[in-house]
Amino acid sequence: MASTPNIKVLAGLDLSEMDQPLIKYLKLLSELLPLNKVTFFHNIKQSELPESFKSPEQLNTIANTIKKKLEATIPALLGDQLPYDIEVSFEDYTELSFSKMAKKKQINLAVLGNKQNLEGNGGLAHKLIRMLPFETLLVPETYNPAPKKIIEAIDFSKYTPTVMQWGKLIKNHHQQADLTFEPINISKLSWKFFPGLSNAEIRKNTQEDIKMKSEKWAKLYPNANPLKVVPAEDKNIASALIQYVKKEKADLLIMGVQGVTSVTTLFMGSVANEVLYLESNACLLFVKHKIES
């Protein structure tokens, strides 16, 4: 990167208890990444409103009321360092309203809540991660306000350089003391089509896989931290990844939106998709593109 990119953020608010921690997190995020501006955005879910609220005049009034309420709440939580604006829309489909707003504001990072204990199914986040043409960061209300560890999920796919680039961007910008970075890979032995592998053979093959990947990593990224290869054992890759994140008490996981098996998982759900369903106190950054300066 010749120069530091300036990141424009679109933060999705849903007027629930999730909003407060999300706004606070953006303050923290500005210490991790070079943020240029944040657009706080809410789309009014018309389908869930009582009939009497659905006239255009009423919707405008609701939009203005929400805007005012957010204007009153945000400064106390965000502080005065980060420029921001507030947008409220009333589209039928929230994902489309996000798309339009992102285009209008030339956004390059969406930040959404990832409810762990609060009610919510995370359906919107699933859709947005797939359809938005830029990165998405999911923030749980249980995030750690003093991040110590960032994990870079490496699968040697086309997204790996992007994951590394976002890691580097944080490394260059962060102001957190003791923040560490660890690239990890989950080793899942493909024993499909072979019923007869004994546990000892599976162990041996896993060891070979670990050795092979570590060597490949050292060749590809000689200056990066050494790759930690974690055997998935009887878990799927997503579960093994999240289990490691929990074990290490990591605060942010950076991963590609699709892995090496994107073709076969196009219809069945990729590792990224499965990760979304798992409980985690870490923030999840799903990357798609290399950052342009």
């Binding site: 409103l49 929400i66 204990n117 919510g120």
Partner: peptide
Amino acid sequence: RSKQEKSYRDTISDLMSEQ
């Protein structure tokens, strides 16, 4: 597991009443 939160409809209704 989830804590019961008030519905979106109630949130908006409350907001409008406050106004």
